[in-house]
Design a protein around this nucleic acid. Sequence first.
DNA 1: CCAATTACTTATCATTTGTTAAAGGATTTC
DNA 2: GAAATCCTTTAACAAATGATAAGTAATTGG
Lengths: 191, 191
Amino acid sequence: MEKQVDFWSYLKSNFLISESSQVALKDACSIQKLQKNEVLQPIGHTCKTIYFLEEGVARIFYYKDGIDVTEYFALEGDFIARAESLFARTPSKKGIQILEDAKVIAVDVNMLYQLYDTHHEIERLFRLIFESAYVDTIQRIESFQFNSAEERYLDLIKNHKNIVRRIPLKHIASYLGITQVSLSRIRSKIK
Amino acid sequence: MEKQVDFWSYLKSNFLISESSQVALKDACSIQKLQKNEVLQPIGHTCKTIYFLEEGVARIFYYKDGIDVTEYFALEGDFIARAESLFARTPSKKGIQILEDAKVIAVDVNMLYQLYDTHHEIERLFRLIFESAYVDTIQRIESFQFNSAEERYLDLIKNHKNIVRRIPLKHIASYLGITQVSLSRIRSKIK
DNA sequence: CCAATTACTTATCATTTGTTAAAGGATTTC
DNA sequence: GAAATCCTTTAACAAATGATAAGTAATTGG
């Protein structure tokens, strides 16, 4: 529980959103408390919720040839959702798991999509949120395209120190696209 | 010039868009004809245009340690834009180059953003377009995370045969995150 | 507090991919 | 159509990463 981020303060300080849109959006939101290791959204489930982490840590994961692979980490102040399932409205082969006791704001997307029709401003809000997530994803592709595993790890330390500090190395390894043994080797080399 | 895709037919058949929105959007659009090897958008330029390819082939590229790297290919019927620059409104370290004589629809984003305010429907249209691009990008990360170069190449043949058929291998190699020599080796192995 | 489990490291060897260099094909340009 | 340039392949060796196994450290649950 390193820091606490309030969803509504976050929205108000980063986006323009009227009082009436806030009130409307609140109806689509609920608070959930979750414990370490809990699976918030199981594999095979069609994503119908966007989460915002106020406290704790979570990850998106899936199995590739029986191996547990982490695709994404969320810390306090991050959104987490399986976008491929959300946008395509198909079952996801990925799940969401809690890595540290968490408090999340759950946004129901069916209600959210209805609000898109009635509150242009809310549609814009989430457009901007996902545009920013899209940019992060593009940058991640770059890091895979022509950086060595060592460079990717050093970047992670530099830009997301809290991930490295708080999350088991095995998950970080798969996130970086390497085995845990390989990450361990890299760590001992750069020390 | 394998096929031809009309921008407006494409929009009308894939999205709900009223006659009046179409008329408004047309004002933000222009047609450009470009020749092979031409640089449509130079490196260092802040992206202010979204392109749709009606004919031809284009790529997004950048230099990593002096090496030419292709990040994205667009064929007929694809959009192409440097999203990280577009959304962050910062200069891009990437450029757009034409690989086969092309005819593109250029959408001016300054005008487009104004239309977002007046035509909710147009904002939605581009939200959906970029959501779909976002999903593609997530899938690309997956392919990097735990597929070998050979698997990535086989996937490309399977899912984007036209890329392999029409684009020089050196560009395909960097797109896959490997050297051209390595791609050549893979090709001779799987034959 | 102990036993069991989970997390991390180290070592060895195999495989994949990178690097460099050279050569043969294909394409472009004049 | 010849020269020049660009594209692709091949080969030999180097470096990075994977696979397996074993051991140590840390954490968890009773």
